[in-house]
């Protein structure tokens, strides 16, 4: 722009005119300067602040000196607020200690609760069912012995031994239940069966047919299968 004004006399003349024109603003600026100088600027803010607070009725806040405990003075000035804050603090502390204390809490433990009587009945029921199941499986093994007596097939003999061992291990668990609930009849028959299974579990493939015949005779003599049926029916009726 300066370059253009240097080269263009018309624009230069116009710029000079504008400059002359704007010089007239100096007078106004002088007037304003005089007006500014005549005002007491130190006093004016207080005057305006007084008017503002008086007009709105808003209580003015005096800022306290910045101290770490300055917030306490605010509480002292407002008893209701201080009381509320104290209540909140005490309540929070009480809640903290209440929840921190170990032991059962109301509503917290969601475990299942049942009476001792109910649990005894449930365990008796379980014992009956276990016994019934044991007798049923034992009956199958004994029937198998009857059907295979005289047969020397190796396969069935090994299977019988396996089943007998399995039932022997179950009998150990069953003993505690039979004694606890005084199931005398069932215990007696189960004990006799256990003796047979002890022998069966020791039967090897080379066991002579005479040995099997002896076991079969024992079952017949004691009417074990019949007794098993009777005990089973009795247990089934109690379930």
């Amino acid at each position: 722009m300066t370059e253009h004004l240097d080269k263009c006399p018309e624009c230069r003349a116009e710029a000079d005119e504008v400059e002359r024109l704007l010089k007239e603003t100096d007078a106004v600026r002088s007037e304003i300067r005089a007006a500014v100088a005549s005002v007491n600027w130190e006093a004016l803010p207080a005057v305006i602040a007084d008017r503002a607070f008086a007009a709105t009725g808003k209580p003015e806040r005096i800022l306290p000196a910045v101290r770490p405990w300055a917030w306490l003075s605010a509480l002292r000035m407002k008893p209701v607020l201080a009381g509320l804050a104290a209540g909140l603090i005490v309540g929070a502390a009480a809640m903290y200690f209440a929840l921190k204390t170990p032991g059962p809490r109301p509503g917290k433990d969601t475990g299942y609760h049942a009476s001792g009587e109910f649990l005894d009945r449930a365990e008796l029921e379980m014992a009956r069912r276990n016994t019934l199941d044991y007798l049923e499986k034992s009956q199958f093994v004994l029937l198998d012995v009857f059907e295979s007596a005289g047969d020397v097939a190796a396969g069935p003999a090994a299977l019988r031994s396996e089943r007998a061992r399995d039932l022997l291990s179950r009998k150990k668990y069953l003993n505690a239940q039979l004694e606890r609930f005084q199931m005398a009849k069932a215990k007696a028959i189960c004990d006799q069966i256990e003796m047979l299974f002890l022998e069966l579990s020791q039967i090897s493939d080379e066991l002579p047919a005479a040995e099997l015949q002896r076991i079969r005779g024992f079952v017949e003599e004691r009417q074990l299968l019949l007794k098993i049926n009777l005990v089973r029916k009795e247990l089934e009726s109690e379930i």
């Binding site: 500014v36 004016l44 803010p45 806040r61």
Partner: peptide, 27 residues
Amino acid sequence: RIQEGDREAFMTIIRLYQQKVFVMAYS
């Protein structure tokens, strides 16, 4: 702070801008 009723903050703002405002009004 002015909204909270802080007089000193209000006076600070006035001190900072009072002359600018005056010149505008006087003009």
